[in-house]
Design a binder for these strands. Structure first.
Lengths: 216, 216
DNA sequence: TCCCTATGAATGAAAG
DNA sequence: CTTTCATTCATAGGGA
């Protein structure tokens, strides 16, 4: 049952944290791109483990939640959206003043995934479909989706050209500006499979979870 | 418990996260500790955010669970039976320690001067040049310059209209801003902080473990 | 220690 | 699509 949570798991988690403090020395100020960090295999492994721990935790929580909600899901509370419901105000105030759409974590995750899939500009039809799906996770309109993609793309682009722009004083421009989709990033040493993130909405719908795949 | 400090920051953190095509795994090989990875600041940031995403997910799941189980015991004893307690201090998880650029006096002076010159719109090219110049007076990136102008202009404008504020009437009601005390953070109904999590030191202590210890 | 203000940064939406 | 605007978030720094 839900009480099956292993405390030991916690212990284990905690034990994994014995990192190395130190490191920020010369790079204290955050100007992007010019500096690089160096990680040893060991550090990478540690990092990987920490993330794996999160994966596990999420997994278990999700499981727990499913059990719970299964045995009692008849109350007035909707479990689906635990993100901000635009109509429920806190402290009783401006119920309707939210003018700007704010993606819920789930929505964002989905959008991000679609975006990542490369198919740059989703056509009208797709947007419509997507909106349909996203609606299940909160208020959203097609315009929101459209704007989101527009912005996402524009910013992604800008950011990229900015990153590769740092030391380009000597050389004209390497290959910074490529006609390909921004789907391609310079080099992503650490690439997490966000399918695991999908898990967040899994507790709601998709029973299948992709927690095991952290193949980076 | 009177002067809590609200904190909500996950919302944003959750935002831009992964978007990388996965490629060489890099870490899987066990060729001894001599192998090192080089990461750019950007990549580091990305990693941070990815982890932060997990943190958030865990938080939310935990919260959801708590809501569920709490509901089982008794009824809405909590304020208004909101399933989410929007405000509540949390120990303050510094998941992402984003450093922020601070203009040096010289830089500021230069920027201010440019701004004064009226050319309100520093086109891209100019920004680039300006950045080049400013770099001689301290770390700075084009983004910084860009942001600076954006903010400078926006705030300048706002301040102006603020001064001309005539509708101090009680009924004017130009905007329906929250009646609760001014300083209270806006609705962060969305971000479930992990205070509850810590408060009961329940099953996990996820939030901090992820990043708190990994302060590279 | 706590709260407030100033301001760098993020981002939805709109204009161009 | 690209650039700009408006609003909001988050944090550094100051004051009591």
């Amino acid at each position: 049952m839900m009480g099956e949570w292993r405390q030991q798991q916690q212990q284990q988690i905690i034990n994994q944290n014995l990192q190395n403090p130190e490191e920020d020395d010369g790079v204290g100020n955050g100007n992007g791109g010019l500096f690089v960090k160096v990680m040893t295999d060991e550090q990478m492994e540690q990092l990987r483990q920490q993330i794996a721990v999160y994966t596990t935790i999420c997994d278990q929580l999700v499981d727990l939640h499913k059990q719970l909600s299964a045995q009692q899901d008849l109350t007035g509370m909707r479990l689906g959206n635990f993100y901000c419901d635009p109509f429920m105000a806190s402290g009783g105030h401006k119920i309707t003043s939210r003018q700007r759409w704010t993606p819920s974590p789930v929505q964002l995750q989905i959008l991000e995934q679609i975006f990542e899939e490369g198919n740059g500009t989703p056509c009208k039809q797709k947007i419509k479909e997507l909106t349909m799906e996203l609606t299940q996770h909160g208020q959203i309109s097609e315009t929101n989706v459209y704007n989101w993609f527009q912005n996402r793309r524009a910013r992604s682009k800008r950011k990229q050209s900015m990153t590769a722009q740092n030391n380009a004083e000597s050389e004209a421009e390497p290959e910074v500006e490529s006609p390909r989709d921004e789907k391609t990033k310079p080099e992503d040493i650490l690439s997490f499979d966000n399918s695991a993130l999908r898990a967040e909405n899994m507790y709601l719908q998709s029973p299948e979870l992709g927690f095991g795949n952290f193949d980076w």
